[in-house]
Amino acid sequence: MLAYTLQRIFQSAIVLLVVGLVAFSMFRFVGDPVDNMLGQERTIEDVERLRGQLGLDQPFVVQYFRFLEGAVQGNFGVSYRQGRPVAEILLERAPATLELAAVSGFLAIGFGIALGVFTAIRRSGFAANAIMTVSLIGVSLPTFLIGILLIYLFSVELGWLPSFGRGETVKIGNWSTGFLTESGLKALILPAITLGLYQMTLIMRLVRSEMLEVLRQDYIRFARARGLRERAVNFRHALKNTLVPVITVTGLQLGSIIAFAIITETVFQWPGVGLLFINAIQFVDIPVMAAYLMLISVMFVGINLIVDMLYFAIDPRLRADRTGAH
């Protein structure tokens, strides 16, 4: 198990190095930052001086290692547009995205698993079939359209919920939270549903098909033949066996909730890192874009690492410390 963990961490590190290379290449190949910073009126001497200051006269490899050195310490340079350290801007924006992603993730996993199990157990019932049909809509509608429809219904027509922003936030240390105020919670509802709906239907359909597969297995038949209660058969025996493949996909989905919050944040003008990234693209703010890229890949890799560890917790067959003779 320890060897496996170390191996996975090593692999994660390599992935991050490659992503780092891509992020770093943006500085060199997407326009010359010196051009952007000095503008039209400049002398050759100015350019040379700035290149020296920024270390751009160094060989490629040296520059890459400097970039990595900075990135590891959380130093991604200075935003071209705002003139402030990128790390500071990201930290300021991160709570909004993380809170939104957390709420969406809970919605997606909670409702996804519950509805998936329900539709698998009552697979010929009316309610189950209705849920399956509706879920098709959830899978096929694009996120921005769901967001706009929700805004139209609940903000414009009914006027119950705000259509943009985070509402009032409360500062706890460096973390600004919307969980503690009424307007903050209200503002969270529509974006969270928009962001989580697709993932929820996906998880639901996955849980359902896996569960139907597991319910056909011999050990489920044997559990029934032993006279166990239907509830024990469904949840203790079937659901646990369903979770292994579900966790894989769910892990990836949670990563994409954070990564693709961009669209939802744009629709709802949610002041998170996704919106920051969109604005950064408009202004070719490369340090911000590179840092965002790194941040997202760290999250993806981290979540995947956790998922791989979860397998061990659930499936005893994977644990290396085998005691039994075979």
Partner: peptide, 11 residues
């Protein structure tokens, strides 16, 4: 049942 390899819940 017939197959002891699949009659027991692996988890």
């Amino acid at each position: 049942f017939q197959d002891p390899l699949t009659s027991l819940n692996p988890l």
